[in-house]
Design a protein around this nucleic acid. Sequence first.
DNA 1: TAACATGTTTGTCG
DNA 2: ACGACAAACATGTT
Length: 259
Amino acid sequence: MPELTEVEAFAQAMLRWCGGRRVTALERLDPTVLRTEERDLTGMTVRGVSRRGKHLIVTLDDAELMVHLRMTGQLLPGEGAAFVRASLRLHDAAPVQLIDPRRLAELHVLAPGGAARRLVGLGDEPFPGPRPGSWWRARLGGARRPLKSALMDQALVAGLGNIAASEILWRARLHPTQRASELNDGEWERLAEAAEAFLSKAMSTQEPDRVVYISRGGENPFSVYQRARCPRCEGPVTRLSQQGRSTFLCPRCQPAPLG
DNA sequence: TAACATGTTTGTCG
DNA sequence: ACGACAAACATGTT
């Protein structure tokens, strides 16, 4: 479900759902998602919610709750949803459910400062932007890997996933297999503008309290991801495989690099 | 039914 | 050190 913009939307929603509330219990309905438990949250008040890459961090009086939703995790206030793996019960507010059919999500209850310690090595934040072309060049330009692979490397830039990478490259008219180290300054600038445009548009699409990405049977909000035709040139969208993941591109708009 | 899935980690090999 | 690849995690969707 989530990449940077969805986690950001979840973080903002979490602040509305839990901000200033006192925790009455952290219910663990499935033992696999609760990976770390260094504190008992009972009685603590939620002081803030933030995001770092694809990690969501809830700050409490004497603890931090760090969540990674991985592929299929979601957060939703209420009770009785399908696939609830944990539930944060609150005083005078609906509980917040961690939902994850696939059970790959991670929940860490850490001592203060624990999240930052665990996130050492995570790359810099592209959002909120804008970031200039030189910013992207400084972080990705040393990689001789395909540009898409570098974009998704969380140690270089934090938060971009498989969909964002395809969408940003399409907007920038850059080919996914192009070596990152071979981009020129104009191409870095195009990447910078495309990233800013994609991230701000994806954020503006999010509705308060209804964080949605690709919804089953719903509209596809993307330009190339799982699309048949390029909305810019009407040409066919093609798919290739990189790092075992599908990359979508418009070969007309994103010409393959020479050599 | 087999292939695929918005993510990350670990191990292997070049 | 860098990078490509496969498998693993565990299960729903197409």
